[in-house]
C-alpha cells in the first residue's frame, strides 16, 4: 500500500474531454490539506480520450492519477463509475475524498459514501484540519457556520461547489504517476445513460461573469423579474437568483446563487429585492463591490454590501437602467 495510505483524493470530472474548473480547484485545496497531513494527493479521472487531460491534474498538484480511459466511461454511468471508485477506495484507503458539487458529483458522492458506509458533508464553503488532523468541513447554517466532521469512518467525504477555492497555478514541470484502471466486466446493467443533451445557454456564465445581478422575491411578479433581467442585460451581466425567485418560477434552478447553487466571484454584484439570506450570500465569494436594492431600510442585506439603495426595486431598477445607458453613451462619445 506504500504511501497511498491516508492520502487526499479528488474525484475529478470531465465534460467533453475537458476537466472541470472545480476539479482543479479541489486539487489545489487537496494539496494544502495533504501537505499539512504529510501525505499525497491522488485523483480519479474517468472518461474517454482523456489521457492528455490526466497530465493537467498532475500539473495542478496531484501526485497520482488513477485513469479510467474507455468508450464505456465517456459519459457518467452511475453503476460503473461508482463500482470503480468504491473498489479503488477499498484497496487504497484514502483519508479524505473531495468531489465537486456538480450534478454528477451530487449523485455519485452519496452512492460512494453509502457503499463505504462513511460520512459525506454537502456543499462546504471551507475545508480545514482541526488540531487532531480531522477534516473540518464548514457549512453555512442558521446565520452561522457549522463544522461537520467525520471522526471515525474513512474516507472523510465532502462536496464543494465551483468557485469556492481558487484555481491553482498549473506547473507543467511537476511529475506524477498515471495509473490506468481497468473497466470491470461483471457490472449489472440496471441503469444506463442513453443520451446527454447540452443546450446552448444565452447570456453570460454566472461563475466567470465580471458583473452579476441577482434578483429575489422582491421582484414581486414576472414583470418585476423582467426588469431585473433588463438591468442584467444593460450591464452585460450574468443574471442570478435566490431560492425564493426559483420557487416562484421566475428563474431557473441553474441560476440560483448560494450554498446549494452557484458560487460567484464578480467585480460587481448587485442584489435586487433580496433580503441577504445567508444561504444566498455565501454564494458570493470575494466580490470587489457589492450593491443592494431593497425597500426595507432594516433589511439584513444592508449589513453585507458596500452600497445600499432603499427603494422599491420595481420602480428603481428602470430608473437605474436609464442612468446606466446615459453613462454608457457618454463613455462612448467621450
Amino acid at each position: 500500500m506504500e504511501n497511498s495510505q491516508g492520502s487526499v483524493w479528488v474525484l475529478a470530472e470531465q465534460i467533453d474531454c475537458q476537466i472541470l474548473g472545480v476539479s482543479f480547484q479541489l486539487i489545489g485545496q487537496a494539496r494544502k490539506l495533504a501537505d499539512e497531513l504529510g501525505t499525497s494527493v491522488e485523483s480519479v479521472l474517468l472518461g474517454d480520450h482523456i489521457q492528455e487531460q490526466a497530465r493537467l491534474l498532475i500539473a495542478a498538484g496531484a501526485d497520482k492519477v488513477y485513469l479510467g480511459n474507455s468508450p464505456q466511461l465517456e459519459f457518467y454511468q452511475p453503476e460503473i463509475y461508482c463500482e470503480m471508485i468504491v473498489n479503488l477506495a477499498r484497496e487504497r484507503q484514502p483519508a479524505i475524498m473531495l468531489i465537486g458539487s456538480t450534478f454528477m458529483g451530487r449523485e455519485l458522492a452519496p452512492l460512494v459514501a453509502a457503499r463505504l458506509q462513511t460520512g459525506l458533508t454537502a456543499h462546504c464553503i471551507d475545508l480545514v484540519l482541526d488540531e487532531n488532523k480531522i477534516l473540518d468541513a464548514k457549512i453555512p447554517a442558521y446565520g452561522g457556520l457549522l463544522s461537520i466532521m467525520c471522526p471515525q469512518k474513512r474516507p472523510q467525504m465532502a462536496t464543494v461547489a465551483q468557485g469556492v477555492f481558487p484555481k491553482p497555478e498549473l506547473d507543467e514541470t511537476r511529475t506524477g504517476e498515471i495509473i490506468p484502471l481497468d473497466v470491470p466486466v461483471d457490472i449489472s446493467r440496471r441503469i444506463q445513460t442513453l443520451e446527454v443533451v447540452r443546450e446552448a445557454t444565452d447570456g453570460v456564465a454566472l461563475e466567470s461573469a465580471p458583473v452579476v445581478v441577482a434578483g429575489g422575491a422582491g421582484a414581486g411578479d414576472p414583470e418585476g423579474w423582467s426588469k431585473i433581467a433588463d438591468l442584467a442585460r444593460a450591464l452585460n451581466a450574468a443574471l442570478g437568483s435566490t431560492r425564493p425567485a426559483v420557487d416562484e418560477g421566475w428563474a431557473d434552478l441553474e441560476t440560483m446563487i448560494g450554498q446549494s447553487g452557484k458560487v460567484v466571484s464578480p467585480e460587481l454584484y448587485i442584489g435586487v429585492g433580496l433580503s441577504g439570506e445567508q444561504q444566498h450570500m455565501v454564494g458570493i465569494n470575494n466580490a470587489q463591490v457589492m450593491v443592494a436594492i431593497n425597500n426595507d431600510a432594516k433589511s439584513p442585506v444592508f449589513e453585507q454590501v458596500d452600497y445600499g439603495i432603499v427603494d422599491d426595486c420595481r420602480e428603481f431598477v428602470p430608473a437605474l437602467i436609464k442612468k446606466i445607458k446615459e453613462y454608457q453613451e457618454k463613455k462612448v462619445t467621450c
Binding site: I15, F75, Y76, T193, L194, R198, E199
Partner: peptide, 9 residues
C-alpha cells in the same frame, strides 16, 4: 445536468 439533461433508462 449542467445546461441540459441526461436521458436515463
Amino acid at each position: 445536468l449542467e445546461n441540459g439533461y441526461r436521458l436515463m433508462q
